[in-house]
Design a protein around this nucleic acid. Structure first.
Lengths: 128, 128
DNA sequence: CGCATTATCGCAACTAAGTTGCAATAATAC
DNA sequence: GTATTATTGCAACTTAGTTGCGATAATGCG
C-alpha cells in the first residue's frame, strides 16, 4: 500500500488531479510546487498514488512522465486503460474515454494494455 | 537535408536498420557500438537519418528514444505512421503494419499522427 | 593524383528528469 | 502527552541525450 498518512503535501498533489480532467506531467508539478515542496517529495507522492491505483502513469512525446486519474480502479486492481492523446503543438495530454475499438487492431498478436496517440488537437488545428 | 557524406559510421548505423525489422533504441546503439564510435556521433547520425525520413523516432515506455525504418517515405514527406507496440516484459518494440483501423477511434476529435501501444507480446505471454 | 574545403567525429563538459540515502520533522496510535 | 515511524528536505547521484570545439576525413575540382 502506498499512501499511509494524509499529509498536507499529499493532499495538495491529489487536489491537482481532482480539479483537472486531463493528464499532468511530473515535471509540471515540480515547477508548480517549486517553493512549496521538494521535487523528491512530489515524485514519491506520485509513486504512492500510483501504487494505490489512484493515478496511473505513462510517458509522453518528449520522454516526460505523465500521470492521469484512474477511473474505475480499486486499490487491488488497475483496470482503467483508457487511451491518451498528446498534441505535438501545445503538448497537452487528453484522456480519451474507452471505446474498445483499439483491442480489435492487434487482436491475437498481443495483449494490449495501453494506447498512446500523438498528433494535432482540435484547438491547435483550427489556429494554424 | 541530413546526410551529406557517406561515412563508415553512417553506414554501420544504417546497416543495423537493414538487418532488423523492428525498432531499435538509441541507447542500444550506443552500447552496441561502444568501442567503435562515440555516443554523440550516434545521436547525430540518427538525427540526420530522421531528417531525411529514412527512419522515424518515438519514445518508449521507459522514456527512451526508439527509431524504426520508414517504409514509404520520401526525403520530402514523412507519411509512414505505422503503429508501434512495446512489450512491458521483454521491452522489445515491434512495428505493426498499418490497418487504418486506428483513425476511426478518435475521428473528429484529433488529427492522429502516431499510435503507440504497450502490453505483453505473444512470446512473453506464452512463457508465463 | 594532390590539394582545399568543409562535413563529420571524438572528447569533455553540460543539461534535465528522475532517484537515493540520511538526518530532521510531523502524523498517528496508545 | 509521548513514542513510533512515515514523510520530508537536502544534497549528491544516475542516466539519456546535447553542445562547442579542435582534429580528422570525405568530397570536389584542377
Amino acid at each position: 500500500m502506498g499512501i499511509i498518512r494524509k499529509t498536507k503535501h499529499f493532499q495538495k498533489v491529489l487536489d491537482q488531479f481532482s480539479k483537472q480532467e486531463n493528464a499532468i506531467s511530473a515535471n509540471y508539478l515540480v515547477s508548480h510546487f517549486n517553493d512549496e515542496m521538494n521535487k523528491s517529495t512530489i515524485y514519491r507522492i506520485l509513486d504512492k498514488l500510483e501504487d494505490d491505483n489512484i493515478i496511473h502513469s505513462f510517458v509522453g512525446v518528449h520522454g516526460l512522465k505523465w500521470y492521469a486519474k484512474c477511473l474505475d480502479c480499486t486499490v487491488k486492481e488497475h483496470n482503467d486503460n483508457h487511451p491518451h492523446f498528446q498534441c505535438e503543438k501545445c503538448n497537452e495530454v487528453q484522456c480519451i474515454s474507452q471505446t474498445n475499438n483499439e483491442s480489435k487492431i492487434i487482436d491475437a498478436q498481443f495483449l494490449v494494455k495501453s494506447v498512446f496517440l500523438t498528433g494535432i488537437c482540435n484547438r491547435c488545428f483550427s489556429t494554424c
